[in-house]
């Protein structure tokens, strides 16, 4: 069936099987392989994307449920060739090692900072409940999110 939605600011219309998961739509149809699959039980969060500005697990959402929605993936965060502050934070603070969970982490952190511009360490850890990382022990991820929060607040203040 036909779905139409906006992905990273670009309107798309595609014919898909109704059973297509949003993550498979993004990866296989839209060709955006930055969004990963790490489990099938909606737990690891590697597939996290923004749907109408809110973090969702694209492995637990059918593409047809995204009809008319605005989807943002990790590929859509940078502006004018410059990283989003969250991406920059992950780079700056060594918030990743193997990188597999990273796109999901970044999208989740982006959602968090849009709601809470100055989260505490505990708030960051709680917000990352739905994103597993096996490499970092999370500490540098916490630092990365804080870096981004400071940067974004400074940019707003300026």
């Amino acid at each position: 069936m036909r779905v139409s939605l906006t992905v990273n600011g670009q309107r798309r219309e595609d014919d898909i099987e109704p059973r297509t998961l949003l993550v498979h739509y993004l990866r296989e149809v839209a060709g955006l392989t930055g969004t990963h699959v790490g489990c099938e039980t909606s737990l690891c969060g590697a597939c996290t994307v923004l749907m109408n500005g809110r973090a969702v697990k694209s492995c637990t959402t059918l593409a047809v449920q995204a009809e008319g929605a605005e989807i943002t993936t990790v590929e859509g965060l940078a502006r004018d060739g410059k990283f989003h502050p969250v991406q920059e934070g992950f780079w700056e603070e060594h918030g990743l090692q193997c990188g597999y969970c990273t796109p999901g982490m970044i999208m989740m952190a982006t959602d968090l900072l849009s709601r809470n511009p100055d989260p505490s360490e505990a708030e960051i850890r709680a917000a990352l409940e739905g994103n597993l990382c096996r490499c970092t022990g999370y500490q540098h991820i916490v630092n990365a999110v804080r870096y981004a929060a400071n940067k974004m607040r400074a940019a707003k203040g300026a």
Partner: peptide
């Protein structure tokens, strides 16, 4: 890390 720009932008290539 020099690995990171591709990994934070979703442009790394994993097997899948």
């Amino acid at each position: 890390r020099r690995e990171d720009p591709r990994l934070v932008s979703g442009t790394g290539t994993y097997v899948d």
